[in-house]
């Protein structure tokens, strides 16, 4: 049963991917079950944090939501529509409405194109009008000068590049944005800037955001609800305040304890 204001409604989601390390010379690689029955509602306008260690399936979950991967079981509803097994043609109009920001801006921005063209390309592809105005608007939103349109990615700092990635995503006026570890590669000071930009955009544009991170500090700062994933299963799913006040699962506590706080007297270290 989907809630009235639910943008994503996921039930019993399973994803299995071929294990290329165990692939025999001839024949198919055996499948590994990555996600084992995930149930999830993402309400419109909310910010969902997805945390877990490496291999927990957090990126796979994100990619399945955007239908970059096809689930092997369960259903995904986006705005009421079942998109679990839609083909590429049927997905195309929906793709505009869900955008992604990637971890490494250096490899997700074409080094041979200028910032203006990088932001304009998806707009052209989706046949928008008034492209220039939309590019300017997107740059304004992420706090970059319009003059940056003529720059190449290598001329920008890491934090600025990541803001270009955000500008490209929001230019399409999507309803949903998936941000996959977008601040892990940045310095602490640029991290703070990028998170501020994202935080403001969510409020200004009424975006729904799923924010994947291994860093609970960043999650706490930004998210309303937090899903903790462990080996493809939900270890804990709670409101951010509740999760940090009283973590229920042992795995959540383990993750929290593992974060090195800037305090020489932190317990359990």
């Amino acid at each position: 049963m989907a809630l009235e204001d639910s943008l994503f409604s996921v039930s019993g989601l399973e994803v299995a991917l071929p294990d290329m390390a165990a692939k025999p010379v001839f024949g198919r690689a055996p499948l590994i079950q990555i996600l084992k029955g995930i149930n999830l509602e993402i309400t419109r306008g909310s910010v969902l944090g997805i945390v877990g260690g490496s291999g927990s399936g957090k990126s796979t979950l994100g990619r399945a939501l955007l239908r970059l991967l096809e689930p092997t079981g369960g259903t995904i509803r986006f705005d009421g529509q079942d998109i679990t097994h839609l083909n590429e043609d049927a997905l195309r109009p929906i793709r505009r409405r869900m955008q992604m920001i990637f971890q490494d801006p250096m490899s997700s921005l074409n080094p041979r194109r200028r910032v203006g063209a990088i932001i304009a390309d998806p707009l052209l592809m989706h046949e928008f009008d008034a492209i220039d105005a939309r590019v300017d608007d997107a740059l304004d939103h992420v706090g970059l000068p319009r003059g940056f349109k003529s720059r190449y990615p290598h001329e920008l700092s890491g934090g600025q590049r990541q803001r270009v990635g955000i500008a490209r995503a929001i230019a399409l006026k999507p309803e949903f944005i998936l941000a996959d570890e977008i601040v892990s590669g940045l310095d602490v000071s640029s991290q703070a800037q990028v998170l501020n930009v994202l935080d403001n955009l969510v409020k200004e544009l009424g975006l729904t955001l799923a924010f994947i991170s291994h860093d609970l500090s960043v999650i706490r700062r930004l998210c309303d609800r937090v899903m903790v994933l462990n080996r493809g299963e939900i270890a804990e799913f709670a409101n951010t305040d509740r999760l940090f006040a009283a973590p229920q699962s042992a795995y959540t506590r383990e993750l929290m304890d593992a974060i090195p706080l800037p305090d020489p007297n932190q317990a359990n270290w």
């Binding site: 602490v188 000071s189 703070a192 500090s217 960043v218 999650i219 700062r221 940090f244 974060i259 706080l261």
Partner: peptide
């Protein structure tokens, strides 16, 4: 600017 999940007000500035 350093993240501190225990003290969200005084971190990530």
């Amino acid at each position: 600017a350093t993240p501190k999940y225990t003290d969200p007000e005084a971190s990530l500035l």
